[in-house]
Design a binder for these strands. Structure first.
Lengths: 181, 181
DNA sequence: AGATGCACTGCAACTCGTTGCATAGGTATG
DNA sequence: CATACCTATGCAACGAGTTGCAGTGCATCT
């Protein structure tokens, strides 16, 4: 019961087709709530049936018609209702931690290489978030309302990636000095 | 394809019944790979069918018989195979971030209270991890092998919760000073 | 000319994960 | 004495999420 709400938030900011939503998820809200185009299409249909959104078919030449969705009054009510309701705190679910815990039952150096690979991946994501921050929020002190909230969400991403990165470094260092001792 | 492996890691450390595994998940490995008893029972059966584990039925009086599972040779091979294979870096999936992004479409102060609630929850988890660290790993410099790896996993939990906590504080501060300006 | 890729929607089949319930005797709490 | 929780396993039903495939037509690369 939450992809619905992520879509409502995104569609309230701007109407769009399923495809456009999927692109947006790849670039922004999906950093914190990942979803594939398949999930999005299915949920859009369900939301349409429930009356939370309406669509307008737009004929295009050269490519298939698209359905542009908008949030209805019912959808807006549902969104405000949900905003006032508690959500579960984010749970970690990290395969790398499981591997690390089992590392001594297999090839420890392969696990170490895996940690190094994850380190690189997290560094890339961190750089992505930081460049968005530089581009869209150069003066964070001046923000308020929706822009402030978007900035704060991005800060969460930056902090999470910094934390992962620091952890990878700690693990790499500990495992290296162990194997040479 | 990963709860299997978390179970293999846990069962390799010690044999146990489905119920015991579910308790263990609540207290340790499940911090990084949550699972309910239902999931665990179902996956145990599948793993048993695949020959990765074997079970011994143990009659008990006063309570139902239990099946104690052990990792087989095939299970050990599967585990080492998996350890050498890449896993996807952990994805965030945080309902609070979605709410924050939509905060200005509803009751902003309700969202702020929600952030405060999450802050308290993360502080509790952090204290849990820290007390495990104090109890089980008072001298982290001396560790190696399996114990070192367990310690490092716990460090990941500590870092993640510290990061969430810091984020909550940043959000709370920014939202409070906005509403009074 | 042929291959690849993008824009756009969607079906089908599957696994993963959650929730509610059932059973059954035990022990602890009020 | 009643209520509730603990141990222990499991079914049934549902919703969430993934993967593979399919079709159309234009644009771009080789």
């Amino acid at each position: 019961m939450a992809l619905e709400h992520a879509i409502l938030v995104s569609l309230t900011e701007r109407a769009g087709s399923g495809y456009e939503l999927a692109r947006r998820f790849d670039r922004s809200i999906g950093f914190f709530w990942p979803a594939t185009h398949q999930q999005i299409y299915r949920v859009l249909r369900r939301m349409d049936d429930a009356g939370w959104i309406t669509h307008t078919e737009i004929a295009q030449d050269g490519r298939p018609d698209k359905k542009v969705y908008e949030v209805s009054q019912d959808g807006r009510s549902e969104l405000t209702r949900w905003l006032a309701e508690p959500v579960d705190p984010a749970l970690l679910r990290d395969g790398l931690a499981v591997k690390l815990r089992g590392a001594s039952l297999g090839d420890t150096s392969a696990v170490l290489r895996e940690v190094e690979r994850h380190r690189a991946e997290h560094a890339t994501r961190l750089e992505t978030y930081r460049s968005i921050q530089r581009r869209d929020f150069p003066k964070p002190d001046k923000l308020n309302g929706r822009e402030l909230h978007q900035y704060l969400v991005l800060r969460g991403g930056v902090r999470a990636e910094e934390s992962f990165l620091g952890w990878c470094d700690e693990v790499i260092q500990a495992m290296r000095s162990e194997s040479t001792s």
